[in-house]
């Protein structure tokens, strides 16, 4: 795939992050803590999957116009290897317990909200339209996940401990969201302090705090992933890899 045009990489980065966290959340389907929350997390999964489809379709269109290729949303999602995926490391991390699942969503959704607000003002009308449509969904994801962070953080002794563990585990993967890649079109440094304020306010209400001076992992945005992504892709891509173009 010819990715000389950095804008194509940026679109794939957006698509990949939404797809990979959707795939992770999708693992909760029929395994949620209770029926009602099982439906809530899978609704969010479908929102994220919808976002990724919009980005993949648009990326495929732009790629084909530029290179005369014949990519589709499916080839981009199912026929690219681990090193081609540009999602945040945060998105591919395992679900762990419910605390870890909702904290990952919280950290990601808060970032997505800020990023998509910027994208919705983009000169690229198509990108702006996708961002605008997604923002309403993301607003709910932020509300839902914030409430869970507060509920568990300020809950029982055990739920508080689990939240602390989740934040300690996930926090070192948040720095990557603000490290610019060659293809980024938004000034991420601007978003960082707003994101941190927002996240800190919720954590404070949840009687939790941000870990101090943590080493930050990076690499996802340029295709260097944790050991977890390969397994995720193996499961997600198996059918299309084994029977390319299969439909049902």
């Amino acid at each position: 795939m010819n990715l000389k045009n950095l804008y194509h990489s940026f679109l794939l980065h957006l698509a990949d992050s939404s797809l990979i966290i959707a795939q992770r959340n999708g693992e909760c389907c029929a395994h949620g803590p209770i029926l009602e929350q099982d439906i809530a997390i899978t609704n969010i999964t479908l929102d994220l999957l919808g976002q990724s489809r919009n980005f993949y379709q648009y990326a495929a269109q732009r790629l084909n116009e530029a290179n005369g290729s014949s990519e589709t949303e499916d080839t981009l999602a199912y026929h690219r290897g681990e090193r081609d995926f540009k999602n945040f490391l945060l998105c591919e991390l395992p679900n762990g317990d419910w605390a870890q699942t909702i904290t990952r969503q919280f950290l990601f959704s808060c970032f997505q909200q800020l990023l998509f607000e910027k994208l919705s003002k983009s000169n690229d009308e198509h990108l702006a339209a996708i961002a605008n449509k997604s923002l309403k969904e993301i607003q709910y994801h932020v509300k839902w996940s914030s409430e869970w962070v507060i509920r568990l953080g300020d809950g029982t002794e055990e739920s508080h401990e689990r939240m602390k563990k989740a934040i300690d585990y996930l926090w070192p993967y948040t720095g990557e969201m603000f490290m610019p890649a060659t293809y980024d079109i938004i000034n991420l440094e601007d978003l960082k302090s707003i994101w941190l304020n927002k996240v800190e306010a919720v954590l404070q209400e949840a009687t939790l705090s941000v870990p101090a001076n943590t080493f930050m992992h990076s690499g996802g945005k340029s295709g260097v992933h944790t050991e977890h992504l390969g397994f995720l892709l193996a499961e997600m891509q198996y059918l299309q890899r084994t029977y390319p173009g299969a439909e049902w």
Partner: peptide
């Protein structure tokens, strides 16, 4: 109640 409304929204 807040969670009930959100669950109702989702269900």
């Amino acid at each position: 109640a807040a969670m009930a409304i959100e669950n109702a929204r989702d269900v």
